[in-house]
């Protein structure tokens, strides 16, 4: 479990990083938190000729929370974003998801943008970005582009980042007023990748009726599966009488969209069943948060 030989680059600025990446092209791999890459290297499952370590590029260590959303720089650690009150205030789903990402020691080192680029369909953050319709900014020598979440995740462990490009930041949009979010998952052990998991966002109208409801599901497809369930959910009568949502129908609507596979931890049938249960739980919780508890019993 020792990595094969590679050339190590430790650029100190973004400009230098992009120059190195342009030089090494497809033979380069960016090292940020290393929580996925280092095990892959040690097991010789990845053998890049060049490792470009961005940990000295201080300008990438940023968390910018603005009314419109949170922009997270490539070196911001999970733990820093999780602890950022400003980020959580603008987009609470970040905190709700990050506490489910592995364990504190991994969150101390791993980065939010790194997790997005790794594009594991079982990971929480890709689902969060996909649910919120966020984007990733990719820089290359002499240019940059902003790629929407829907185009960013291209397959299991595959993203839109091209050789020579660096994901410099990700943008997690804020939700309108009277919105709520939740992330519910079931993992075999505390901190493991989810067997199934659902991120949900619900927006209520002025009469506390469901105006928008979306979910993103993990571990049930090659990329996070986003489903808009607004139509199935409502709109419904106001909070005073509770929502008369047919949750089974909502769950079925999402279950029809996913394509879970069997692995050593769970059957596809169980994953589909579990996703349905978690869709209901996450949507109820998100709606509850959106209405600040004013809508009564769900």
């Amino acid at each position: 479990m020792k990595p094969p030989p590679f050339d190590y680059h430790g650029p100190a600025s973004l400009g230098e990083t992009l120059r190195v990446l342009a030089e090494v092209g497809p033979h380069g791999k960016v090292l940020a938190g290393g929580q996925s890459l280092i095990p892959l290297l040690n097991m010789r499952l990845a053998a890049p000729a060049h490792l470009v370590d961005i940990n000295r590029v201080a300008e990438l260590d940023t968390i910018a929370a603005e009314p419109g959303g949170v922009r997270v720089g490539a070196l911001a650690r999970h733990a820093a974003v999780e602890r950022s009150a400003a980020a959580r205030a603008v987009q609470p789903l970040l905190g709700q998801a990050l506490r489910l990402v592995a364990h504190p020691v991994i969150r101390n080192r791993g980065t939010v943008v790194g997790s997005l680029v790794h594009a594991d369909p079982s990971a929480e953050l890709p689902a969060v970005l996909a649910l919120l319709g966020g984007s990733v900014r990719l820089a290359r020598l002499g240019g940059e582009r902003e790629v929407a979440a829907a185009e960013f995740f291209t397959g299991p462990l595959e993203s839109a980042v091209a050789p020579g490009e660096l994901a410099v930041s990700a943008f997690f949009p804020a939700l309108p007023e009277r919105s709520g979010t939740a992330f519910c998952e079931v993992a075999r052990r505390h901190g493991d990748y989810a067997v199934a998991g659902v991120a949900a966002a619900v927006t209520l109208d002025e009469d506390f009726r469901i105006a928008a409801a979306r979910v993103a599901c993990v571990s049930v497809g090659p990329v996070p599966v986003v489903a808009d369930v607004t139509e199935v959910c409502g709109p419904r009568p106001a909070a005073s009488v509770g929502w008369d949502v047919d949750w089974d129908a909502v769950a079925r609507a999402v279950q029809d969209r996913i394509d879970p596979e069997e692995d050593i931890h769970a059957t596809a049938t169980y994953r589909r069943h579990l996703t349905g249960v978690l869709v209901t739980r996450a949507l109820k919780s998100a709606a509850h948060e959106a209405g600040h508890g004013e809508q009564g019993e769900l």
């Binding site: 079931v186 075999r188 067997v195 931890h265 769970a266 059957t267 049938t269 169980y270 069943h273 579990l274």
Partner: peptide
């Protein structure tokens, strides 16, 4: 026995 196994037994 895992949750998936238990689910299968229930079914």
């Amino acid at each position: 026995i895992s949750p998936s196994d238990l689910h299968a037994l229930r079914l």
